[in-house]
């Protein structure tokens, strides 16, 4: 091959769309995933701009207008057991519910990936020690581990976040370890090693790009579980404490009202459901957009 031809070939490689832009293109053609993405973005915007979106103060209670039905003038979604505006509380609730649901997965993504990639790349005794420890935490059903930890630590936002993060590190680390072990055996990693690259460089240049995609997709599939679990902790009186608006906690405090205003009491669950379905559909869309290698 002449020098000019090889330069042209390199230019062509540079111009050809990367893997991730291909994924984005495929994702954009998936109507279900796009709707889910729109809902997720709307929820995030709602959480950020809650003070401007919410019609009322979510904390202001009133003994004379408790448990009003849906459609009450001024309170379109009724009022809760302390007379606070449901619509405003649901809007503000997105803040803590999203934070408690998404944050643990993000932190666990970084910590779990670091543990799994280290175990997979270094192998040997390091792998055994790390992965056997992970196995112990993986041996707990996720709900049980979350409740064990936050039950012992006590209620509170930080304790809830900490417990959920610990719950999601083992599954992510397991996936990261198995993907990395697979990549380590591919020839170009051997070639990089033979050419004298250090372990850190190999991980950064050759391994990370190949393993982070599958780990990321797996992590996104955990967000919906995490949301349900996070609100579940608050529902049990762990996690977020009153009077903060949080969907799971709202479900808990409204539980006694199901004989008075059943549909108002069920509203916070609708929000959890919509959020969790959207994250699930988005994750599914991402998965199929990434699996198509053609």
């Amino acid at each position: 091959m002449s020098a000019a031809a090889s330069i042209a070939a390199m230019a062509a490689i540079e111009k050809s769309p990367g893997y991730w832009s291909g994924v984005l293109t495929r994702l954009r053609r998936d109507p279900v995933a796009m709707v889910a993405l729109a809902v997720v973005l709307a929820l995030i915007l709602m959480a950020i701009f809650a003070p401007w979106v919410a019609p009322n103060d979510p904390y202001r209670s009133s003994m004379i207008r408790r448990l009003r039905p849906i459609g009450t003038p001024g309170f379109p979604l009724g009022t809760d057991e302390l007379g606070r505006d449901m619509l405003s509380r649901l809007i503000y609730g997105a803040r803590l519910s999203l934070l408690m649901g998404v944050m643990p997965v993000i932190i666990a993504f970084f910590v779990g990936s670091a543990i799994g990639i280290t175990a997979g790349f270094v192998g040997g005794r390091v792998n055994t020690v790390l992965m056997r420890t992970i196995d112990v935490f993986f041996a707990f059903p996720s709900v049980l581990l979350a409740i064990a930890l936050s039950g012992a630590l006590g209620a509170g936002i930080f304790n809830g976040l900490l417990s959920l993060t610990v719950v999601f590190i083992p599954p992510i680390a397991r996936i990261a370890e198995s993907v990395t072990t697979g990549v380590r055996k591919i020839e170009y990693v051997e070639a990089a090693r033979a050419s004298g690259a250090s372990g850190f460089t190999i991980v950064r240049v050759h391994v990370l790009g190949n393993v982070i995609g599958p780990i990321f997709v797996y992590a996104t599939s955990l967000i919906s579980v995490s949301l349900i679990l996070a609100s579940g902790l608050s529902f049990l009186g762990l996690g977020v404490k009153p009077p903060e608006p949080e969907w799971g906690l709202m479900l808990n405090t409204l539980r006694n009202a199901i004989y008075v205003q059943p549909w108002v009491a069920a509203l916070p669950g609708v929000m959890i459901f919509i959020t969790s379905v959207s994250f699930n559909l988005l994750s599914d869309g991402l998965r199929s957009a990434m699996d198509l290698k053609a």
Binding site: G232, F273, V277
Partner: peptide, 14 residues
């Protein structure tokens, strides 16, 4: 897989 089952329980009770 997406429904918060504790909420589903409440809805069924309702």
């Amino acid at each position: 897989v997406s429904v918060p089952h504790y909420w589903l329980g409440m809805v069924l009770v309702i």
